[in-house]
């Protein structure tokens, strides 16, 4: 067992973990952060995308021990109390989800994209989300939502 410390959505945690424990399982099974789902076993789908020290990672492809000392942000850390994050609201308003399974990863990948490109074109959004699969929507509404979310964030001067 290895002792690690991580900060998740602003709360510090100290945990004893097996080296083989995946970060996504630490989040879900040990810390109760079930907003981050596990989608695939092949690093393809991006459903488990979170921010690790400010950049997107697929949390099924990181060991918990590799995250020792890191600052993690999951979809559960975005809302400000009862007020949704502008990107969450944009996904709702644009009907950018049907089953919703990919949504947490889509939102986190979208926020990562906006760090480099706060006002992305449709093409930049599609490339920025290339690691995130949706099997319901056909992506059009997701792209619209990211554009709307980006505008709302810029209006409110929100960066993540």
């Amino acid at each position: 067992m290895t002792r690690i410390t991580v900060t998740v959505d602003g709360v510090a945690h100290e945990e004893e973990v097996e080296p083989r424990l995946l970060l996504v399982h630490l989040l879900r099974d040990r810390l109760g952060k079930i907003g981050t789902p596990v989608g695939c076993d092949t690093s393809n789908c991006g459903a488990c995308t979170i921010m690790m020290d400010g950049r997107s990672v697929k949390s099924c492809s990181v060991l918990a021990v590799q995250a020792d000392g890191s600052e993690l942000l999951t979809v559960e850390g975005l809302a400000d109390g009862p007020t949704w994050h502008p990107m969450q609201r944009a996904f709702h308003e644009e009907h950018a989800l049907q089953c919703g399974y990919c949504t947490p990863g889509m939102i986190m990948a979208a926020l990562d994209l906006l760090k480099d490109d706060p006002d992305p074109s449709d093409e930049a959004i599609r490339h920025g989300l290339e690691g995130n699969l949706c099997r319901c929507t056909g992506y059009s509404n997701i792209v619209k939502a990211v554009r709307r979310g980006a505008r709302a964030m810029s209006d409110q001067e929100v960066t993540t």
Partner: peptide, 9 residues
């Protein structure tokens, strides 16, 4: 190579 999240790691 892969996608942005994979390229970060």
């Amino acid at each position: 190579v892969a996608d942005p999240a994979v390229r970060h790691r």
